[in-house]
Design a binder for these strands. Structure first.
Lengths: 161, 161
DNA sequence: TATTGTTATACTCTATAACTATA
DNA sequence: TATAGTTATAGAGTATAACAATA
């Protein structure tokens, strides 16, 4: 359990991190901004999945996911097939064109990151990755264990009934 | 120099980090969202400064800074005094009310963070803080050494002449 | 002529709520 | 009645460009 000043400092760094994210975002093509790119990345890693699963992994509302997916579908980078097991659902999957697009973007992004982190050791990069993974996990776990009032554990607009 | 897969994984975590930031943002009062809160934090830490310095520390365009500062000034949390040394400039400084507001928010935010990171050791929190600080520094340094074409080292819309 | 700061406009990301079609 | 997904609307953050005042 760290001191309050330590948490304050960490929060400062969270805030400053936005600059890093924006710089990485600037090299993405305008027809595939970061929100859409995140969808492609998840599909490439975890394979076909339903919208709701995608929303869960993105940790955003399904309405947001729907928009990103629609954007990608218009450009032919993903396809939405009906789910035979549940006609309400749609299975999202990456097309070869989508894979290609993702590869292109990934190339550019890792190149920029490699340039910026040129003087970082392999171990330091791994360490930051581990800690950020754990950070996300700590927030996810707590969301399930101690849900804030009115905050669902699923990424969904509450039913209005 | 890490492998490409390592960079890709790190970028994945950068993307997922948005969820953490959003959860922290949700506990802020609606009259002081995260952009404004960042301004208060910087003023509390570094003291009075000019708009341009503030924009530099926030790593956003000065037009953005101007909006946040105007928002805070309307609520009496900061004041803008003319700079006697340069009549174009304005010095921004925190009011006692602004300090109070910041304290309140800081209380809530660190409380939430402490709850989420309850099972993190002191050293782990410190390590993440160090690595994120260094990350930001690596991006800042590179911006000065290898500026992208058209990307100024100062946070400023390029002159249109 | 260049710089400081402001404002207007536009774009991305997000959440809420209302709606549909299934279950 | 509840759930999967869509769409409309609104709010926050940011960048670009044009502008006023000063250097």
């Amino acid at each position: 359990m760290a001191a309050k000043a330590q948490y304050e400092e960490l929060i400062r760094q969270f805030s400053a991190f936005g600059a890093v994210k924006r710089e990485l975002g600037r090299i993405l093509p305008s027809d595939c901004p970061s929100g859409s790119a995140a969808v492609l990345t998840l599909l490439a890693r975890y394979g076909d999945m339903r919208m709701s699963k995608l929303a869960d992994l993105l940790a955003v509302d399904m309405s947001v996911t729907s928009r990103h997916v629609a954007h990608l579908a218009e450009r032919g980078w993903i396809q939405r097939s009906p789910d035979p097991a549940d006609k309400r659902s749609r299975i999202v999957h990456l097309t070869p064109e989508g894979e290609h697009k993702l590869d292109e973007m990934s190339e550019e992004t890792t190149r920029l990151l490699a340039e910026r982190l040129a003087d970082w050791s392999d171990e330091e990069v791994a360490q930051l990755t581990r800690l950020m993974t754990r950070l996300r996990a700590s927030f996810d776990d707590c969301r399930d264990r101690h849900p804030s009032p009115g905050l669902e554990s699923t990424t969904r607009t509450p039913a209005s009934t």
